[in-house]
């Protein structure tokens, strides 16, 4: 094994390669690695943020849902109340109408009875006069005895 000038040649080559590595290899590659590291860190941050925002959104969705459910329940209750109110009102109106019709009918009947009574009374008066004429054998002056006959008819 001979030591010779190769050792000097190697030292020169080594220095040149180290220089080239320092200049063209190490800085750009480590810069790229650092850049990617930063990017990944940012990406992870963004993912975290997105997850947090998603959780927030879900929470607000939940809240909104709850609120609308409550509102719907209130509305349904109101509607039910209103419906029963309408039914009640309708019932009352119908009742009132029925009462009114009943009252009118009763009044009509009363009137009819009165009219019939009047007619009967008039006929009775005539019959009484005719009967009395026959009994007395003489005509009774209707006009003279009108007050008497009417008194009689009113007593019937």
């Amino acid at each position: 094994m001979n030591m010779n000038m190769t050792i000097l040649g190697q030292m020169i080559s080594f220095a040149i390669f180290v220089y080239l590595c320092m200049k063209f290899v190490w800085p750009p590659l480590t810069a790229a690695l650092a850049e990617r590291q930063k990017k990944i860190a940012e990406g992870l941050d963004a993912a975290d943020k997105a997850a947090r925002e998603l959780a927030d959104a879900q929470q607000s969705v939940e809240a909104a849902l709850q609120e609308s459910k409550a509102q719907a329940a209130v509305l349904i209750e109101q509607a039910n109340k209103r419906a029963s109110q309408i039914v009640d009102e309708a019932k009352e109106t119908a009742q009132a109408e029925a009462d009114r019709i009943k009252a009118a009918a009763a009044a009509d009947v009363e009137q009819e009875i009165n009219r019939a009574k009047e007619a009967l009374r008039a006929q009775v008066a005539t019959l009484v006069v005719a009967g009395a004429e026959k009994i007395l054998g003489a005509s009774i002056d209707v006009n003279n005895h009108k007050a008497l006959v009417n008194k009689l008819a009113a007593e019937l």
Binding site: N2, N4, M5, S13, F17, L20, F24, V25, P28, L29
Partner: peptide, 28 residues
């Protein structure tokens, strides 16, 4: 003696070193 150089060692080592620099700087 000392006044000589191992041509094969030099050629192969410089060639391999140049390959290293070429490959890595190309990727860089």
């Amino acid at each position: 003696g000392f006044m000589s150089i191992n041509v094969d060692s030099m050629v192969w080592s410089v060639g391999l070193g140049a390959f290293f620099i070429w490959l890595f700087s190309r990727v860089a």
